[in-house]
């Protein structure tokens, strides 16, 4: 197993492209090292991206923020400006692992690990975040929901990796929130999760919304029907019920050691309802 720590994006892409065997990109390493220890993978090449220029920076851009791929969730959580604009995203990233893990773990890593239960991903999807993908060719921008292809698999091609995630600007009277269900209070993997991002008009009517669900399908789901269920409403009880029903209808989960199909389907709707209420209040609405 080779370990490389390139200084430029081009060198990183070249190394990853040239390697014929199994490669892994190392950011915080909170997934890669666990996989190594468990014997799940024996990579031929590990490329540490932490020395790449700007990879650990949070930069204001076009009213939003560009989050470097190696920005730790702890660093993200301390950024008051990002937290003010996208509190749901920052909270979601802050739920991952322990305090120690937070000092290493990154949102880009969470996205590329491609677990359907990754906590940062539904919130990023609801936020309409965009990943910047570097590789052998020209860098391209990809909506985050298009990155995971299935459990442990991404749509990234050989030699490609994420260099940053862009959180866009948003109108006034907007809010977002993420909730996950775990049997404990921390240090756990989501059994089901939901993220809601929405914008209100001056009357408190929802004018735009995005709803994403985690751990209820092979990839995080962006549920248009759920957004439709609350757009044009003030999130009254019937709108909440319609939201929950649309979310449950969009679930295609599995039975496993963490939860049953029945449980995940039910609870995804409950979480969406509760997350929507938080997002609505954050947007300035009177729930």
């Amino acid at each position: 197993m080779r370990y490389e720590k390139p200084q430029t994006v081009a060198d990183a892409a070249r190394l990853l492209t040239a390697e014929k065997g199994i490669t892994r990109v190392l950011g915080g390493g909170t997934d890669v090292l666990v996989q190594l220890k468990a014997g799940m993978v024996e990579p031929d090449l590990i490329v540490d991206i932490k020395a790449l220029p700007g990879i650990r920076a949070i930069v204001a851009e076009a009213g939003g923020f560009r989050i470097g791929a190696a920005v730790s969730n702890a660093q993200l959580g301390e950024d008051a400006a990002v937290r003010a604009l996208w509190p749901g995203v920052v909270e979601a990233a802050g739920l991952i692992g322990s305090t120690q893990v937070q000092g290493r773990a990154t949102m880009a890593g969470n996205l590329c690990n491609a677990s359907p239960a990754g906590d940062a991903v539904p919130a990023l999807v609801a936020a309409g975040a965009v990943a910047r993908v570097a590789g052998p060719g020209v860098a391209r921008d990809v909506p985050v929901e298009a990155i995971p292809a299935g459990p442990g698999k991404t749509t990234l091609k050989r030699g490609e990796f994420i260099t940053s995630i862009f959180l866009p600007a948003r109108p006034a009277k907007s809010g977002d929130a993420y909730l996950r269900f775990i049997p404990r209070t921390e240090m756990d993997i989501a059994v089901a999760s939901a993220a809601v991002s929405l914008t209100l008009n001056d009357q408190g009517v929802i004018t735009a919304a995005r709803v994403a669900l985690g751990a209820v399908a092979p990839t995080v789901r962006l549920v248009d029907d759920a957004a439709t269920a609350i757009i044009g409403t003030k999130l009254h009880d019937d709108a909440q019920a319609a939201l929950a029903a649309a979310c449950s209808a969009a679930c295609a989960p599995i039975d496993d050691k963490r939860g049953t199909i029945e449980f995940r389907t039910e609870v995804a709707g409950v979480l969406a309802k509760r997350a929507a209420r938080i997002a609505y209040t954050r947007a300035g609405g009177q729930a």
Partner: peptide, 16 residues
């Protein structure tokens, strides 16, 4: 055994 680790063998954590 499906859960031979502390991630899925869930002992209480302090905040529970």
């Amino acid at each position: 055994l499906q859960n031979p680790g502390f991630l899925d063998y869930r002992v209480p954590v302090a905040s529970d």
